[in-house]
Simulated assay, not measured.
Amino acid sequence: MKNHHIAHLVCTAALLGAGLAATPSAAAHTVHLVRPGESIQSAVDAASPGDTVLLAHGTHHESVNVTTPGLTLRGMGRGTVLEPETGPSTATTTAPTTGSGAAEAANSCAAAGNGICVTGTKNHSVDGVTIASLTVTGFTRSGIHAYEADGLTVRRVTAVKNGVWGIATERSVHGVFRDNTARDNGDAGLFLANSVTEEQGATDTEGTLVERNRLEGNRIGVTVRRLRNLTVAGNHLTGNCAAVFVVGDENKPKAGRVTVRDNYIERNNKFCPKTARLDALQGSGIVLTGTEDNLVTHNVIKNNVGTSPLSGGIVLFKSLVGTANERNWISDNLVQGNSPADLVITDPGKDNTFQDNTCGSSKPAGLC
Rank of each mutant, 00 (worst) to 15 (best):
D45Q: 09
L71V: 02
V118Y: 07
L295Q: 07
G201L: 03
S319P: 11
R267Y: 06
K363N: 08
S172I: 05
T121R: 08
G366Y: 02
G189R: 00
I131S: 12
S63V: 04
P309E: 08
Q41T: 02
A365K: 14
R141S: 14
S48Q: 11
P96G: 14
D187K: 14
G306I: 01
C359S: 13
D150N: 13
P49S: 11
N235D: 12
L320G: 04
F177T: 03
G113W: 03
G58A: 08
R212C: 03
V260F: 02
T121A: 15
G239N: 06
N333R: 06
A149C: 12
C241V: 05
N235M: 03
T68H: 04
R261T: 13
D279E: 07
L55E: 10
A193Y: 01
I144T: 01
R171F: 09
L367C: 10
S331A: 15
V157Y: 01
A365H: 12
V258Y: 02
T181A: 11
V222N: 00
T346Y: 03
V160K: 06
P340H: 12
T68Y: 00
V53P: 10
V335Q: 12
N218Y: 08
I345K: 01
S48I: 00
A242W: 00
A13T: 06
F271A: 11
G337K: 04
V118C: 10
S63C: 08
I345A: 01
H298F: 10
G163I: 11
A132M: 00
N333C: 07
L55Y: 08
A132R: 04
K252D: 15
T30K: 10
L73N: 09
T297D: 09
D179V: 02
L16R: 15
V136Y: 02
T94M: 08
T323R: 07
I286M: 03
G19D: 15
R277M: 13
N180D: 14
L295N: 03
T238L: 14
N352Y: 05
E206D: 13
L33Q: 12
K270L: 15
G217A: 12
F245L: 12
S311I: 02
T80V: 09
T140P: 08
I286L: 04
S125G: 03
L20V: 14
N194G: 12
E292H: 06
I220V: 15
P309W: 01
V210G: 01
L33Y: 05
G37E: 07
T197S: 15
T307A: 13
G87M: 04
T259D: 12
H8P: 09
G360A: 15
L73S: 14
P96Y: 04
T197Q: 14
T97A: 15
V344I: 15
A111W: 01
D351C: 05
L71D: 00
R78I: 13
L334Q: 13
R141M: 10
H174Q: 12
D293V: 06
L215P: 01
V53R: 07
D249C: 07
H4S: 14
E198P: 00
L71P: 01
A365L: 13
L320K: 10
P49M: 08
D45P: 01
G17T: 05
T140A: 15
L295C: 00
T67S: 09
L192N: 09
L134S: 05
E199H: 10
A103C: 08
L15S: 15
I144Y: 00
